[in-house]
Design a protein around this nucleic acid. Structure first.
Lengths: 326, 326
DNA sequence: ATCATTCTTTGAAAAGATTTCACGGAGACA
DNA sequence: TGTCTCCGTGAAATCTTTTCAAAGAATGAT
């Protein structure tokens, strides 16, 4: 019935010992032979008992690689994901990496834990990592980041539409000198939000009045806004690529004696809890976190059934929350 | 050399099969017999291979139970802990629970993952849970919470001294109507900070001018501050039990046309990133996160060597960061 | 109350996997 | 070239899990 080591040994024309050795790391065996045995074993569907229990243990484990916990949006994501996974009885392993770093040095650690799935948010997935995951049968879901260079599942907010909505809204309010403070240039969130924003501006007969990159941080957003607002002619509105930069822009304006929204309209993206604070009342595009996480969990759960290499991309609509800042 | 099932069987006067069954959950065996076998096995130091690999896999896993990710202090803790554990090659499992909830319903899930250690922050550890952990040899560390009803390790900031420092500082600035906005009454952070604050006030010949509880949330802090500031005679200073409530107090004051620090001095606790933002420039007690996490990791690593039931409590000094708000 | 049936528990034995052992061959070094 | 060491190997020994058959306890129907 169940495939045994003996069958594998016979098929691969080696001894039973060799099969056992192939499955225990660190035992002395010719790498080529191990490769062949593993291949035959995979074909017959054989797994060693040790590996079987290992799979038992780590069954239902999801690894999250988070890039930027300093942005309050991501703790929110983490919290939502943690609760969603708890609800379906899965475990959540968390790794964080410094923003901008890639995750290659973590690869061995991550793979050693043998998670069922890998959720990556706000961090770059290298193609090496993607390949390694595919090899180990680990389902990968990119959250809020779309990469065309690797074929993986992705769930994101409709950043393009969000950018468009922001532009449309500002133009409808009669703004004529509209600026944009971006995040990190080679991220899909930056690109899509910028593209949608620019596109709608163009459709409304306007073009970008000013532009800068704020690196998704408060500090960066503050510096960028300050620079924009101290020009000879300053913008009367800015769309910021995320909320903390938008809050920074409001702070910078305030520091210069400008008031929002009279002197400067500010729109952000994310709808972090601070956006509601009375000092800010930030108008922003809300990301549908709960729905996004549901989608992620669905993809992970489906992953067990469906073939592993399908590339589903799920884009969910954001929602413009109009508060006081624009 | 190594103890085998046969030895255990002989010692416990049962068959080898029985020993095997005792170790595989769900097999039919008399519970009393299993108990006896497990005890003999523990005495001889025998573990079944399945369990051995299971221990291999989950070796170095630390579980964090976080209660309140909405307070930006805890994402900071999470990030620091994640990086520290990554550095020593351990895995971090994360669970979150709604603030105020206790963690008993998570117990089976948490134990099933067989972590090496459990770090609990901003959540209540029940004595059942503590007992279960002790039984399974899981080292427990309470972070930023001290419970006298269970005997576990704890790492915290010196909340008492922090409260004292806040009071001393406000009095030195000539404040005479000093209020306090607390968190949740039955938390040790609240109690210790309040006690230290009150004590120093008393030593300076003053007493609390006003007092309210803000539940550690922005909303709660805002409401509390608003209520205090709309009294006939309002306080000229408030010490808030954490930073988000302090920011809320500043917002509430601002909304009422009061300025900080002229009309109202505000001091917080934690030193979250937002405290530095130019709209707030919050004077606050900084918690030494890095040192606290180091301490936690030390306790966990030491846990392997030292006996399991020692009750180490490590209190680290905070530091008053003087900015603009007081 | 009695008998049949089923379920649980159990050790013996079979089956399966890992570890040990002894051997053979490939390089390293004199 | 000889010897020594180290790696890879299958056979065999050892260890563990699983299957099997039997005994006993519990349940239920008559």
């Amino acid at each position: 019935m169940k495939p045994t080591a003996k069958q594998v040994a016979h098929e691969a024309d080696v001894s039973i010992s060799a099969v056992s050795r192939a499955f225990s790391p660190g035992s002395s065996i010719d790498p080529a032979k191990r490769q062949r045995i593993l291949q035959v074993a995979a074909q017959l569907g054989y797994t060693s008992p040790a590996r079987r229990t290992a799979e038992m243990i780590s069954a239902g484990t999801v690894t999250l690689v988070a890039g930027d916990l300093a942005n309050p949006f991501y703790p929110l994501v983490l919290d939502t994901l943690a609760k969603a996974l708890q609800a379906v009885g899965r475990q959540l392993l968390v790794y964080t990496i410094a923003p901008g770093t890639d995750m290659d040095q973590l690869t061995p650690q991550i793979l050693a834990a043998r998670p069922n799935a890998l959720v990556v948010t706000s961090a770059r997935l290298t193609s090496d990592m993607a390949r390694a995951c595919r090899q180990h049968g680990i389902r990968v879901v990119l959250l809020n980041r779309i990469q065309s260079d690797v074929r993986v599942n992705a769930v994101a907010c409709d950043n393009h539409a969000g950018g468009r909505d922001a532009a449309t809204f500002l133009m409808a309010r009669g703004r004529r000198r509209i600026g944009f403070i971006g995040g990190i240039l080679d991220t899909s969130t930056h690109r899509d939000r910028a593209a949608g924003f620019r596109e709608a501006l163009q459709a409304g007969g306007q073009s970008l009045f000013a532009e800068a990159a704020g690196g998704y941080t408060y500090r960066g957003g503050y510096v960028a806004a300050q620079a924009m607002l101290t020009q000879k002619t300053r913008p009367d509105a800015v769309f910021c690529c995320n909320d903390i930069m938008a809050l920074a822009a409001i702070d910078a304006a305030r520091e210069l004696g400008l008031s929002t929204p009279d002197d400067l309209s500010v729109i952000g993206f994310d709808d972090i809890p601070m956006a509601k604070w009375t000092s800010y009342r930030l108008t922003t595009i809300r990301q549908p976190i709960t729905r996004m996480i549901n989608e992620v969990v669905n993809l992970i759960e489906a992953g067990a059934a469906v073939a592993i290499d399908d590339t589903a991309t799920s884009i969910l609509p954001g929602k413009l929350m109009v508060r006081g800042s624009a």
